[in-house]
Computed example of a mutant assay.
Amino acid sequence: MELNQYPSAIATAAQTVNNLDFDISRARRQIAKFENRADAEVATNQDLRNDAARKAERFQILENNADYQKLLDDLAELTHQKATAMSELEKARNGFSAAKIEARAAIAQQIAALECAEFIGI
């Protein structure tokens, strides 16, 4: 990749991470809605006499909710995708840093060659 292409690649990778952050946030909000509904259902159930029974009922409600389970799977996948995207972003940033160092080294060599040629009198 050319030195001038890195900023665009870094911006694209950063935007991918931002989009995944948004999707993760949205999934977490939806998960919280399901959990709040389950909590409300458990709270209004007069048959549940103790905390252990309420926790077990809440667990069963959420365990049997296919949409909730899918959201949990989606969240896990999005989290994995974000980790991969973060690694791509770091790779682009590190590549840019390495390319800048190489460009500076090439410039320094050219300057040194010119100074040497001037010193010799060429």
Results as ranks from 00 to 15, higher is better:
residue 17 V to P: 09
residue 25 S to F: 06
residue 37 R to K: 05
residue 77 E to A: 12
residue 105 A to C: 02
residue 17 V to A: 04
residue 24 I to R: 14
residue 121 G to L: 08
residue 122 I to W: 08
residue 118 E to I: 13
residue 39 D to P: 00
residue 117 A to F: 08
residue 110 Q to I: 05
residue 106 A to P: 05
residue 22 F to V: 05
residue 76 A to G: 10
residue 66 A to I: 12
residue 107 I to P: 04
residue 29 R to W: 02
residue 58 R to N: 00
residue 68 Y to C: 01
residue 116 C to I: 02
residue 11 A to L: 11
residue 102 E to T: 08
residue 68 Y to A: 01
residue 23 D to Y: 07
residue 66 A to P: 05
residue 78 L to S: 07
residue 57 E to V: 10
residue 3 L to H: 12
residue 53 A to G: 10
residue 113 A to R: 08
residue 70 K to N: 05
residue 96 F to W: 12
residue 54 R to T: 00
residue 93 R to E: 15
residue 27 A to K: 03
residue 26 R to S: 11
residue 9 A to R: 14
residue 21 D to H: 12
residue 37 R to M: 04
residue 22 F to Q: 08
residue 114 L to N: 11
residue 105 A to Y: 09
residue 63 E to W: 03
residue 36 N to E: 13
residue 83 A to F: 04
residue 93 R to G: 14
residue 11 A to I: 12
residue 86 M to D: 13
residue 63 E to N: 10
residue 29 R to P: 01
residue 96 F to H: 15
residue 115 E to Q: 13
residue 72 L to R: 14
residue 4 N to P: 03
residue 36 N to R: 15
residue 63 E to R: 12
residue 21 D to R: 15
residue 38 A to G: 02
residue 41 E to W: 09
residue 112 A to P: 02
residue 37 R to P: 02
residue 40 A to V: 05
residue 101 I to P: 01
residue 117 A to S: 11
residue 88 E to F: 09
residue 110 Q to Y: 03
residue 105 A to F: 05
residue 83 A to D: 11
residue 7 P to R: 08
residue 10 I to C: 09
residue 83 A to M: 10
residue 70 K to Y: 00
residue 78 L to K: 12
residue 59 F to N: 09
residue 8 S to W: 12
residue 58 R to K: 13
residue 44 T to N: 09
residue 90 E to M: 07
residue 107 I to L: 08
residue 73 D to V: 14
residue 55 K to D: 08
